[in-house]
Simulated scan of single mutants.
Amino acid sequence: MRMLMNVELPLEPFNTAVREGTAGRIIGRILEQCKPETVYFTEQNGHRGAVLVVQVERESQIPALAEPWFLQFQAACQFRIAMTPADLQQAGLDALGKQWS
């Protein structure tokens, strides 16, 4: 299933990695491993952050996606299921509406 992965990077240790010139290399390694469909770097709650679109077939894949961010940057990660319009059309909303009305 497609998931949105929100990553919030605290000021430290990320500032130190930027100063040492290692932040880009570390992020590159993480992205190479998790192979997101897409990634956007943005602000998250006043901190540096990223939003990745990742494919997850099993819940057991989540640690492999989150641990590099935790261990390298002490980041916070959140996961949300994401649907395309086609996914939503297959959800059976009309039947659910009749069932629960």
Rank of each mutant, 00 (worst) to 15 (best):
R29H: 02
P85F: 04
Q99S: 14
L4Y: 07
N6R: 11
K35Y: 01
E57R: 15
A66G: 02
Q74A: 12
Q78V: 02
Q55T: 13
R19V: 06
Q90M: 12
D94M: 15
L96D: 09
F70T: 02
P85S: 06
S60C: 07
A95Y: 10
V7R: 03
S60Y: 06
W69N: 01
G97H: 11
Q90Y: 03
I81S: 10
L4F: 12
C77D: 02
V39W: 02
I27C: 05
R25W: 04
P36C: 04
A82N: 06
N45P: 02
S101H: 13
G92M: 14
E57M: 13
Y40M: 12
M1N: 10
F79N: 02
G46M: 10
E57Y: 09
D94N: 13
F41Q: 08
N15T: 11
A95Q: 15
G21P: 11
A82V: 14
P10H: 06
A64I: 00
E12G: 03
R58K: 15
G92I: 09
E20Y: 10
L9Q: 03
K35Q: 06
D94L: 15
V56C: 09
A17P: 07
F14L: 15
Q72G: 02
Q90P: 07
E8Q: 15
S60G: 09
W100R: 13
G46E: 11
Q44S: 13
P36H: 01
Q44F: 14
N45W: 15
T38E: 08
A75K: 03
R25H: 08
M5K: 01
I81G: 05
G92R: 14
L52V: 01
P13D: 08
W100Y: 15
A50N: 04
L31F: 03
A23L: 13
V53F: 04
I27N: 03
P13G: 05
V18F: 10
W100I: 14
A64P: 04
R29C: 00
T38H: 04
T22Q: 12
L93R: 06
R48D: 05
R58H: 14
P13A: 05
A64G: 14
N45V: 09
L52F: 11
K98Y: 11
A75C: 05
Q44T: 12
F41D: 07
Y40K: 10
E8H: 05
R80I: 08
E32M: 00
R58P: 04
F14W: 11
P36E: 02
H47I: 04
I27M: 13
E32G: 01
T22K: 15
K35H: 04
V54N: 00
L31Y: 02
I27F: 06
I62N: 02
I26F: 03
G49V: 08
L88S: 01
W69C: 00
H47C: 13
Q89R: 14
M1L: 13
T22Y: 11
F70W: 12
G21Y: 10
R19Q: 15
E67G: 01
G46D: 10
